[in-house]
Design a protein around this nucleic acid. Structure first.
Length: 223
DNA sequence: GCGACAG
DNA sequence: ATCTTGTCGC
């Protein structure tokens, strides 16, 4: 699929923050989620020494069967800084997406979207660059406060920050720690949570990110 | 000054 | 993210 050219890549935090400020207005945080989601893409990155491997796995949203996979190798071009995480993984993720022959209906990122200190996490950034609906599903909280959701699968509680609901702590499996869902681009929070639940019928994390996680690791091993 | 801090 | 043995449970 086609992805817009990346903006000049930042070298230091100051430049990265400026880019987030410039792109933030482009994120669509109010549209209803996509009406017909037939394919969903999961993205993840694995690290080893001074290398990293990005993987994208497209699944049939109905059967969760794999439709297509793509990977890309890269070197970390930016240090890990909470809040600027996207600048570390985006180049490789975009390369992997470009190698895809199909254009997925939704992107499921491992990390946050709106639930970010500047309201522009990886999911928002990737959504803006691709123009595709995207959501963020993180394993741990980055910002905000929340009450522990009920113990049953499907239970959730709002994650509030600065007086607004930036995401939700969603229990995808009974008795298991919740995941943190937030809007990225062109998708509403209800749809994001519904999709996350559909994608996680058996495990805590959605099949999309589980599949992408495995693929990124084996890509690294295969060198 | 003291914590908190996606992956 | 990654470094790592055993252990509890379905």
């Amino acid at each position: 699929m086609k992805v817009a050219d990346l903006h000049p890549w930042p070298k230091v935090a100051e430049e990265a923050l400026a880019i987030q400020d410039r792109l933030r207005p482009l994120a669509d945080l109010t549209s209803a989620g996509p009406q017909a989601v037939r394919t969903v893409a999961g993205l993840d990155v694995a690290y080893a020494d001074d290398r990293l491997a990005a993987a994208v796995v497209v699944l049939d949203a109905e059967t969760l069967a794999v439709v297509e996979e793509a990977t890309a190798l890269d070197r970390p071009g930016f240090p890990y800084v909470p809040g600027l995480f996207a600048f570390r993984e985006l180049p490789a993720l975009v390369d992997a997406l470009r190698a895809l022959s199909v254009t997925p209906d939704l992107l499921v990122c491992d990390g946050h979207g709106l639930a970010h200190p500047k309201r522009f996490g990886l999911a928002c950034h990737l959504g803006v660059l691709t123009g595709l609906p995207s959501i963020g599903v993180g394993k741990t909280r980055l910002v905000g406060d929340y009450d522990e959701p009920g113990d049953e699968r499907g239970a959730w509680s709002p994650v509030g920050d600065g007086g607004q609901e930036v995401g939700r702590a969603l229990r995808t499996q009974t008795g298991v720690k919740p995941v943190f869902v937030s809007v990225g681009h062109r998708a509403d929070l209800d749809t994001a949570c519904a999709m996350t639940l559909r994608l996680a019928p058996r495990y805590r994390l959605p099949e999309t990110t589980r599949r992408a996680d495995h693929l990124s690791r084996e890509t690294l091993r295969a060198r």
